[in-house]
Design a protein around this nucleic acid. Sequence first.
DNA 1: AGGTCTTTCCTTTTT
DNA 2: GGAAAGACCT
Length: 712
Amino acid sequence: MSEEILNGLNDRQQEAVLTTEGPVMVMAGAGSGKTRVLTRRIAHLILDKNVYPSQILAVTFTNKAAREMKERVAQLVNTDTHYMWISTFHSFCARFLRSEIEHIAPYTTKYQIIDDDDSEKIVRDIIKDLGYDVKDYKPRVFLKYISDEKNGVDYKINQRDYEDLFVKVKERYQKSLVEQNLLDFDDLIVLTLRILNEFSDVREKYQEKFKYILVDEFQDTNLVQYELIKILGGKYQNIFVVGDEDQSIYSFRGARVENVAKFRCDLPSTKLILLEENYRSTKSILNIANNVIKNNPGRIDKNLFTSNSNDVTPKYFTGQSSYEEELFIVDEIKKLKLEGYDYKDFAIMYRSNHLSRSIEETLNKYRLPYELYGGISFFTRKEIKDICAYLRLIISHDDDFSFERIVNEPKRKIGPAMITKLKDNGLVTKKSLFDSIDSLSASGNGYNALIDFKFTILELEEDLLNKDIPLTNIVDKILDKTGYAKMLKESGEEGEDRLENIQELKSLIKEYEDSYSDLSRVDILEEMLQNITLKTDMDNKNEDSDSIKLMTYHQAKGLEFKIVFMMAMEENIFPNQLALSENSIDEERRICYVGITRARERLYITNSLTRYVFGHQESHLESRFVSEIGYDNLERVGLVKRTIPVQSAAKQTEDVKKVVSNDLAIGDVVSHKLFGEGRVVEVKDKIVSIAFASPVGIKKMLKDHPSISKIR
DNA sequence: AGGTCTTTCCTTTTT
DNA sequence: GGAAAGACCT
């Protein structure tokens, strides 16, 4: 037995590590060291039980959790983690399907994974094509239905009349995906399960291969994922699942807490281990977390305890305005920074992404470094997806999906009419869109542009095969030869940002080039393109950088910080309004529980009497979770006048209509709401360029923007 | 066909 | 207050 395996583990944790045979379920409270248990267990299997790394399958929900587990296991066992299947559900399935999908033709191993934006576009086009208005028939609703169907979630169709339409759209959508060899996120899991179910040879192969299976965040599995785990572990049944019912916060995408009970029912020999000691948080933080979660009905009361001390009572601040709330956060961060904390010790959390905007502005204003999680992911940015589509088309000319995406991007006068013509022609000749260009009988500007486009792609293909050109330079060649760079350069500052993002893509190519040096250039790119859709923005973050982290509670899952601010703790924001109307208050409460338990040393609850929502000022009540925490457990800070300053409607419209007119000339000194003082360096019609002090630099903005005022 | 102005709807949460 | 789709014009 390797000594380091059990080092520093309590009895329960040791038991969880050492019980390697048969089904085991670990109910792990927040901060009870479940990641430690998971990684030590894998190390134990490899080092002491002589299990090959390739016989272990460990699945998590986020790339981040998977990467962390991989790194920590690598440290412990000192072997190449390349052979280990430590990944997310989705990337496990993607990897499985790369070798097995041809069992269910017409899919081929060259399949492409599409993201939600792509799915929505396809559904939107179908709805329009069927003659319905997307205003009345929202693509999102259809997508939700399609996804629920795939995941085995009962979908309540409110309007019975629509049922036929739902089915029709779903069938068209799925047909379209199959025809183009596309898989959406749900397909990855569903098709993997289908192959395992239908092909016994495949099933037996993988059941034999994965002698040990570990599942993290088990409470977040949906029906299909549950079935997948069960079938994979069907032979050896060495299935180890870790979860916490109180942290189930993904029911909106089909997660079923019931799976916890179902598992023990399906596998009656399951050994149950409870981890109840919390090593993360102080007593008072744990106490209020328990206060909140105990309001949920029907849960098994856990007895989470800690021997941590060093207590600071959590603080509660209410601002007159959200700006005041933000100022409070800024002040506290500054104060604690002086006391010796680093910026990276702080996290600011909120219920939904849009709440980050105003706190970002304030952090900017006070020059505090922060990093925003979530928002638009790097890999779903239009420019990144466009360049990837170019790469795909260059590599395989029959990729119609990519062809359609970029044939008129940048604009080449190849409009929908021309595409329809090309499609019809392709149907007759049974060729891809790209290959149909030759046999198209047409003329005019559009047609000439199409011919040009074809030669550009062929030229780029030559560049790709030309080993004298560094692989990463293919991106520059695309930017240059397709006119994409030109288009971006002409679109001002935003275009510059987009160009920078595309340069980032080059570093990703370089990464793949380095780690797959034995593959051909085309194969390296294919490998990257296959994996890119499953990458999320989280992968792109540098969590060690000394900056304040901004994220939603969902993004915070599995993370911990010394100091946590839970902001905008107001009814209808958190708990979220829609959740309230859907009767999912229990899940909101679990989200709150997750938030509180992220904090190690200090916790702040903040809110404000007024806040702008959709550009309108609103007043919300204090979140019910504050009273559930208990006022006695919080230290009220700041003075709060209980008068709610609601502006009259007349005053509001006055504010909106207030038009600023700045008479600016070069050399004038102005003050900007966010960037401070600056000097006008250029005036061009309605646009002025103003030089601000570093690091802001020169900004172009509207002359009459209300945030600018002339000083002298 | 494409550019620009106008309107609408919006906001849960994510792989 | 802002993105994105639609309307309208060139």
